[in-house]
Design a binder for these strands. Structure first.
Length: 467
RNA sequence: GGCGGCAUAGCCAAGUGGUAAGGCAGCGGCCUGCAAAGCCGUUAUUCUCCGGUUCGAAUCCGGAUGCCGCCUCCA
């Protein structure tokens, strides 16, 4: 089986062949920590979380780096607005990042570097670029000269001459070329600053990713990921810096995830419709959010709407309903999953550019097949156990339905007293035993009014919150 | 102006040359005291439109229309 990935560099699906056999080194652009993370951050982080999980499941030894940009214009501006220390502000939102992402069941990366911890490698890199003639100094700033890097534009498919530089923003006249960008910025009074050969200053935007990735992964590595918006200028500039400095290819495969729209609109400052993860999690179960995020291909735009989330929740409930049905009945044959046709199909789909949407389709085929077997009663327990194992493993890769089924259903009960529910169910069971259908139905109506749905099973009555 | 993407059933969404996955909703049935859950059947002779290539196209090519993104330190 072969893994194919869509490489932004080249604009096509390509056979994935790691630089070093059996090992994958990947770097994903993390957040600039000046505010809480929104649902768009969640998509990027969850998508690459699943990619890392799948690559590991597939047997690769993965080194995963996801950074924090903790010194930056936006952080300084926000700190000034609110009268805080930029460092304190950044630290607070790094903590908030972990709160949100832990809630979303995102696994930690192997390295989670902060820019402020990599100042020296950044200075070294800028210095090398100056020495090699790719950068020049102006008033304590250092700029990268884009005309010295002949393949500038190869990632985003642009040519310098085609771009209307300065069409929408004023060009700093001190720059030699409108697209030259800052590697190092002279610090204004009160801003975070470090000593450098060019005076007190701080890193420009793009340089930190080049420095951190090369320090932790080497000059050339396998996968670099991030949101589509980072293709230009951020990743284009990273390539220019890194390849100019090392003389070697920077990244073999560039992966970019699509955006999340909110009720058919782009999230934007002007619309002020940024949807924060913490707010989403007030209303929705974390795995339902992952189900929503992974139900479309990672490169497609997706639309966050109440309907879409309701659907994602319903899908998650369907999986958990089966898992609850299996609880204490047929244990999963975890060690035999490699032989499962469902797992086999799932891997083929994930091998095709991490097609989680198709993979989830297979997950549901496995769910239906297993329900069928359970309905049949006299079915082969081995097949049920195998399906059970495959469903759990698919869930582990996706980070969906990884918890205890009973706990899932109980967690949905926010304002409900479980003891009262159990009491009503017990009374109804007694009424049913006495064939007092009127009383049984009255008790069920009472539960329904509470938002509780019940299911009479051979083993007894179970309940959950109605959708 | 430059670059790129997308248009598949009521809704969401896979499918990149071989005859339309999956989920939600709907309808009919089985099961059930009645339900719920589950299962079965049904729901696109068809993939925005028009041409073309091919034995064969949702899938490739050309054109049209519509929507969207990037070129603004927005994931």
């Amino acid at each position: 089986m072969t893994l194919r990935v869509y490489n932004t560099l080249g604009g096509e699906k390509q056979l994935f062949e790691p630089i070093e056999a059996g090992k994958v080194r990947m770097y994903v652009c993390g957040p600039t920590v000046y505010d809480y993370c929104h649902i768009g951050h969640a998509r990027s982080v969850v998508v690459f979380d699943v990619i890392a999980r799948y690559l590991r499941r597939r047997g690769f030894e993965v080194t995963y780096v996801r950074n924090f940009t903790d010194v930056d214009d936006k952080i300084i501006r926000r700190a000034n607005e609110t009268g805080q220390d930029p460092g304190v502000l950044a630290a607070r939102f790094i903590e908030a990042f972990y709160t949100d992402m832990d809630a979303l069941l995102v696994e930690r990366a192997d390295h989670e570097p902060k820019v402020t911890e990599f100042i020296q490698p950044i200075i070294d890199l800028v210095q090398r670029l100056v020495q090699r003639g790719n950068a020049y100094t102006v008033d304590g700033d250092v700029y990268f000269d884009v005309t010295t890097f002949e393949s500038y534009g190869k990632l985003s498919g642009r040519r310098l001459e085609d771009m209307e530089a300065g069409a929408r923003i004023e060009v700093d006249q001190r720059k030699r070329h409108p697209h030259d960008f800052a590697l190092w910025k002279a610090a204004k009074p009160g801003e975070p600053a470090w000593d450098s050969p060019w005076g007190r200053g701080r890193p420009g935007w793009h340089i930190e990713c080049s420095a951190m990735s090369s320090t932790l992964l080497g000059d050339t590595f396998d996968i670099h990921g991030g949101g589509k918006d980072l293709i230009f200028p951020h990743h284009e500039n990273e390539i220019a810096q890194s390849e100019a400095a090392s003389g070697r290819p920077y990244v073999k495969y560039w992966l970019h995830n699509g955006f999340v729209n909110i009720n058919h609109e782009k999230m934007s400052k002007s619309l002020n419709n940024f949807l924060m993860i913490r707010d989403v999690l007030q209303r929705h179960y974390p795995e339902a959010v992952r189900m929503f995020l992974l139900s479309s291909h990672y490169r497609s735009p997706i639309d966050f709407t109440p309907e879409a989330m309701a659907e994602a929740s319903a899908k998650l409930t369907r999986v958990y309903t089966l898992l609850r049905r299996l609880t204490g009945r047929t244990p999963a044959a975890a060690d035999k999953v490699d032989g499962s046709p469902f797992w086999h199909r799932f891997t083929a789909e994930m091998d095709d550019d991490f097609n989680t949407a198709a993979g989830i389709g297979t997950l549901f085929e496995a769910v239906r097949a297993t329900n069928q077997l359970l309905d049949a009663g006299n079915a082969d327990q081995g097949e049920i156990a195998l399906n059970h194992g495959a469903i759990l493993r698919m869930g582990q890769v996706l980070g969906i339905a990884t918890g205890d089924a009973e706990a899932y259903f109980k967690s949905q009960a926010r304002d409900i007293d479980p003891a009262r529910v159990e009491d009503l169910i017990a009374r109804r069971t007694a009424a049913r035993k006495a064939r007092d259908w009127a009383e049984a139905d009255r008790l069920r109506d009472e539960l329904t009014a509470m938002g509780v749905a019940i299911e009479d099973r051979p083993e007894g009555t179970v309940w959950r919150m109605a959708d």
